[in-house]
Design a protein around this nucleic acid. Structure first.
Lengths: 192, 192
DNA sequence: CGCAAGTGAGACATGAATGTCTCACAAGGA
DNA sequence: TCCTTGTGAGACATTCATGTCTCACTTGCG
């Protein structure tokens, strides 16, 4: 009978371990299981008891990232108001997960086609649909495909996340930099 | 007396090896030295005779990337015409190196602060100076810092490179997608 | 007070990539 | 033809992350 009660100090909060691992791997994607364990304040043995191996850990992080992404998509209410407003809300909701997403984004690049998690496809569809809505409403230009705008959003978020980490961009500017570049571009708009 | 003449078939063209390695590592950044050697059509022993180790190979690729970047910067004549035109030329010149640059871009993320190649700093300065020039001439908006625009350029090029590799974006649209998003953004411009 | 459960520390084996070495072979030059 | 040079193939030791195991310790509970 597996009652999920805490027994001892039970520092082994699965959630806490995942958060620590995400924070560490975001900074150093090649960190060892030993380093991950130390970062979480547990021993390597305990880490192994929770996640069968490095693969399982990364998969769990991927699931966490997808979960947070979909939560952000829900919270951003992509169908409300103009598409532009929805994009702004979406970036705001995704900001807290940016580090984890940046890690997963590059991690996925080296999963050479052995099939990635279906969750990403679901997310891609929803984001692309938002851009498509903006195109159909006349807000967004139609020469940039929704697929590319989606990809660009991911890329800009990852770039911004690293730029903030390395101090090249102020953390408080994260949202503004991404949204303004993605929506408005670098060119100065002529005053109407 | 080391005369640099060819002796046998001399399939070991250092340039060719680097190109092959770049092409392979761009697709699979975790490729083995053995795989790199096979991709170049040489044995692992010969590969090792040219590059002391994996580190040396990556360093050589980094040097190649920097070299191509600076060549692109030169060819783009960043000082000529408007900054906008210069950005368009720059992306065009960088397109052929996009895969290699994308590989090096992510590779650098896991060099946790142990000092990266000075060449990148030189390139950063030149690109940032271009964006600064655009700001001072009134072409570019001033609320997006040159450092961020530089970072965004790298990020968009890497994203576009992957998107093309995975078939989500047509290769022929590479230049247009990057330049238009970076300069104009997703929002439709009001017709003047 | 014991018992059960979970943990930390560490030993140990495994597998993979790496780096080093030797040896035989092919090709060009004297 | 002989010698030099560079190469391919393979054996070998090494390193490192990983996965598995044991054992002692601590804590909560009956």
């Amino acid at each position: 009978m597996s009652h999920l009660r805490y027994c001892c100090l039970m520092a082994v909060d699965r959630e806490h371990v995942l958060r620590s691992a995400a924070a560490l791997l975001t900074r150093k994607s090649t960190a060892t299981m030993d380093e991950v364990a130390k970062a979480a304040g547990i021993s390597r043995a305990t880490l192994h008891r929770q996640f069968a191996g490095r693969d399982a850990l990364v998969r769990a992080l991927e699931a966490l990232g997808i979960e947070e992404c979909e939560a952000a998509l829900d919270a951003a209410r992509l169908g409300d108001g103009t598409a532009q407003e929805a994009v702004r809300r979406l970036v705001g909701e995704l900001e807290r997960s940016a580090g984890l997403l940046a890690f997963l984004y590059t991690e996925n690049q080296l999963f050479e086609g052995d099939g990635q998690h279906e969750g990403w496809a679901r997310i891609d569809v929803r984001v692309a649909a938002l851009f498509r809505r903006g195109q159909e409403s006349g807000e967004f230009r139609i020469d940039l495909t929704p697929a590319w705008l989606t990809e660009a959003l991911y890329g800009l978020m990852a770039s911004a996340s690293w730029a903030v980490t390395e101090g090249r961009v102020a953390a408080k500017d994260f949202h503004h930099m991404i949204v303004e570049l993605l929506l408005g571009g670098a060119l100065r708009r002529e005053e109407p």
